[in-house]
Deep mutational scan, measured.
Amino acid sequence: MRSPRTRGRSGRPLSLLLALLCALRAKVCGASGQFELEILSMQNVNGELQNGNCCGGARNPGDRKCTRDECDTYFKVCLKEYQSRVTAGGPCSFGSGSTPVIGGNTFNLKASRGNDRNRIVLPFSFAWPRSYTLLVEAWDSSNDTVQPDSIIEKASHSGMINPSRQWQTLKQNTGVAHFEYQIRVTCDDYYYGFGCNKFCRPRDDFFGHYACDQNGNKTCMEGWMGPECNRAICRQGCSPKHGSCKLPGDCRCQYGWQGLYCDKCIPHPGCVHGICNEPWQCLCETNWGGQLCDKDLNYCGTHQPCLNGGTCSNTGPDKYQCSCPEGYSGPNCEIA
């Protein structure tokens, strides 16, 4: 077999650049994923090309098998939009790539799955459409700058595939050579959905506090709520009108309100015997008056200043008058 000629994957630097851009600016990249293909086995019993010639040398006159050299087999892949009637021409609109030389006439790579040499990765940054057309071609490398490479066999497949970690196996069982391969579509990290176009990256910072479920939905951490999980859940009972919080379990009062639940107004400074319904009010309790509710309107009842059976009459805020019984006098009937 001729010395292998290595063929790198098509578009790999571009895919790395796209992945970097997506990581830095995830909101700009609407989708991100990759179409993967792995060659599993190849069977070319006679070492022939599609045109019937030998990959190298002439045929044995007896059994008609190619004798001089085995094929240097590598694969090309073209991925494009779905076609009900597949045409070989036209651009590979979803991507293209190739393997290096991975074997001779016949080989089996099932035991070495995950080997990069027999895998082609086609990254995409558009919403995966699920339906596709795939062209797979086996080629013989001439290892010659003058002699062109020659095609051994080709296969085409049109179908639908959803993103999954599971592989789907396909076979080419007609023509001079048979080969088996597997395909799958996977979303990149933080991308979800059938189109790999739903973005969700767990975070716990100013912009949100959430994890992501298997469908890419945000699940808020304990103590947080809202579409972006950036609204803290305040202390139970915290007034929704007069209290708020920036951290879970907190209850910060608005100006003019106080209390554990921010449901108590702050009265006017200096208010003595008054209450409030709104901040800075001083609504006097019964029998109290004045701007600060510090004037006693029922001095008689509060202090009972009249002595010796005198009768007390309220005459104004903090004022009274005693009517003394016979034989007593003085402001409080204290003089006998």
Results as ranks from 00 to 15, higher is better:
residue 47 G to V: 15
residue 46 N to I: 08
residue 33 G to S: 04
residue 77 V to G: 14
residue 205 D to G: 08
residue 214 Q to E: 10
residue 274 G to V: 00
residue 104 G to C: 04
residue 318 D to V: 15
residue 23 A to T: 15
residue 5 R to W: 13
residue 213 D to H: 04
residue 121 V to L: 12
residue 40 L to P: 03
residue 262 C to R: 01
residue 122 L to Q: 01
residue 91 P to A: 13
residue 203 R to K: 05
residue 251 C to R: 13
residue 162 N to H: 12
residue 28 V to M: 02
residue 84 S to P: 13
residue 75 F to Y: 02
residue 147 Q to H: 10
residue 23 A to P: 00
residue 217 N to H: 14
residue 44 N to I: 14
residue 12 R to C: 14
residue 35 F to L: 02
residue 139 W to G: 02
residue 72 D to H: 13
residue 292 L to R: 09
residue 101 V to I: 06
residue 22 C to S: 06
residue 251 C to S: 10
residue 162 N to K: 06
residue 263 D to N: 07
residue 53 N to T: 03
residue 173 N to I: 08
residue 321 Q to P: 03
residue 299 Y to N: 11
residue 233 I to F: 01
residue 133 T to A: 02
residue 292 L to H: 02
residue 202 P to S: 10
residue 151 I to N: 05
residue 54 C to R: 01
residue 112 S to I: 10
residue 69 D to Y: 11
residue 162 N to I: 14
residue 261 Y to H: 06
residue 148 P to L: 11
residue 256 G to S: 01
residue 287 N to T: 08
residue 236 Q to L: 07
residue 247 L to H: 03
residue 234 C to R: 08
residue 326 E to Q: 03
residue 285 E to K: 00
residue 9 R to Q: 13
residue 202 P to T: 07
residue 142 S to N: 04
residue 58 A to D: 10
residue 99 T to M: 10
residue 192 Y to D: 07
residue 153 E to D: 12
residue 230 N to T: 07
residue 110 K to Q: 15
residue 284 C to R: 03
residue 16 L to P: 13
residue 163 P to A: 15
residue 54 C to S: 06
residue 214 Q to P: 14
residue 263 D to A: 08
residue 232 A to T: 12
residue 179 F to L: 12
residue 6 T to S: 14
residue 8 G to S: 15
residue 264 K to M: 05
residue 294 D to V: 04
residue 174 T to K: 04
residue 273 H to R: 08
residue 164 S to N: 05
residue 133 T to R: 03
residue 273 H to P: 01
residue 332 N to Y: 15
residue 221 M to K: 06
residue 65 K to Q: 15
residue 190 Y to D: 10
residue 271 C to R: 00
residue 252 R to M: 08
residue 40 L to M: 11
residue 335 I to F: 14
residue 102 I to F: 09
residue 113 R to H: 09
residue 11 G to A: 01
residue 161 I to N: 01
residue 130 R to W: 05
residue 273 H to Y: 10
residue 51 N to S: 02
residue 154 K to T: 12
residue 310 G to E: 06
residue 194 F to S: 11
residue 283 L to V: 08
residue 115 N to Y: 09
residue 317 P to S: 14
residue 31 A to S: 13
residue 215 N to H: 08
residue 114 G to D: 09
residue 135 L to P: 02
residue 118 N to I: 09
residue 128 W to R: 07
residue 305 P to T: 05
residue 88 A to P: 14
residue 6 T to P: 14
residue 138 A to E: 00
residue 266 I to F: 11
residue 159 G to R: 03
residue 222 E to G: 11
residue 104 G to V: 05
residue 35 F to C: 00
residue 269 P to L: 07
residue 310 G to V: 10
residue 157 H to L: 14
residue 253 C to R: 01
residue 226 G to A: 14
residue 89 G to V: 10
residue 198 K to T: 13
residue 21 L to F: 10
residue 161 I to F: 15
residue 83 Q to P: 12
residue 120 I to N: 01
residue 289 G to R: 04
residue 82 Y to C: 15
residue 237 G to R: 06
residue 114 G to C: 12
residue 307 L to V: 07
residue 72 D to V: 11
residue 298 N to S: 00
residue 186 T to P: 00
residue 322 C to G: 01
residue 66 C to F: 11
residue 128 W to S: 11
residue 117 R to L: 10
residue 93 S to R: 13
residue 166 Q to K: 10
residue 194 F to C: 09
residue 305 P to A: 03
residue 146 V to F: 07
residue 74 Y to N: 00
residue 110 K to T: 15
residue 68 R to H: 07
residue 288 W to C: 01
residue 280 W to S: 09
residue 333 C to S: 02
residue 283 L to P: 01
residue 195 G to C: 11
residue 277 N to K: 00
residue 46 N to H: 03
residue 321 Q to R: 11
residue 238 C to G: 12
residue 107 F to S: 07
residue 312 C to Y: 00
residue 113 R to G: 06
residue 217 N to S: 14
residue 198 K to R: 06
residue 227 P to H: 04
residue 302 T to I: 01
residue 276 C to S: 02
residue 64 R to G: 15
residue 6 T to K: 15
residue 239 S to N: 01
residue 317 P to T: 10
residue 56 G to A: 03
residue 74 Y to F: 14
residue 117 R to H: 11
residue 270 G to A: 08
residue 224 W to C: 01
residue 119 R to L: 09
residue 57 G to D: 10
residue 119 R to P: 03
residue 45 V to G: 04
residue 248 P to A: 12
residue 321 Q to E: 04
residue 315 T to K: 08
residue 307 L to R: 09
residue 284 C to F: 00
residue 22 C to F: 13
residue 291 Q to L: 05
residue 77 V to M: 03
residue 255 Y to D: 11
residue 332 N to S: 13
residue 192 Y to S: 09
residue 220 C to G: 05
residue 336 A to D: 05
residue 239 S to I: 09
residue 216 G to S: 02
residue 263 D to Y: 04
residue 325 P to H: 06
residue 299 Y to F: 00
residue 278 E to Q: 06
residue 101 V to D: 01
residue 25 R to P: 03
residue 144 D to Y: 08
residue 9 R to L: 15
residue 88 A to G: 15
residue 141 S to A: 07
residue 184 R to P: 02
residue 321 Q to H: 07
residue 85 R to C: 14
residue 281 Q to P: 02
residue 241 K to N: 06
residue 76 K to I: 15
residue 196 C to S: 01
residue 138 A to V: 11
residue 60 N to K: 10
residue 43 Q to K: 01
residue 277 N to H: 03
residue 331 P to H: 10
residue 134 L to S: 00
residue 69 D to A: 15
residue 235 R to L: 05
residue 276 C to F: 00
residue 125 S to N: 02
residue 118 N to S: 05
residue 155 A to T: 10
residue 191 Y to N: 02
residue 87 T to R: 00
residue 66 C to S: 13
residue 156 S to T: 07
residue 151 I to L: 15
residue 30 G to E: 13
residue 322 C to F: 06
residue 133 T to M: 09
residue 73 T to A: 14
residue 264 K to Q: 08
residue 131 S to C: 02
residue 275 I to L: 07
residue 84 S to A: 14
residue 92 C to W: 00
residue 228 E to G: 12
residue 316 G to S: 07
residue 208 G to E: 05
residue 57 G to S: 12
residue 317 P to A: 13
residue 162 N to Y: 08
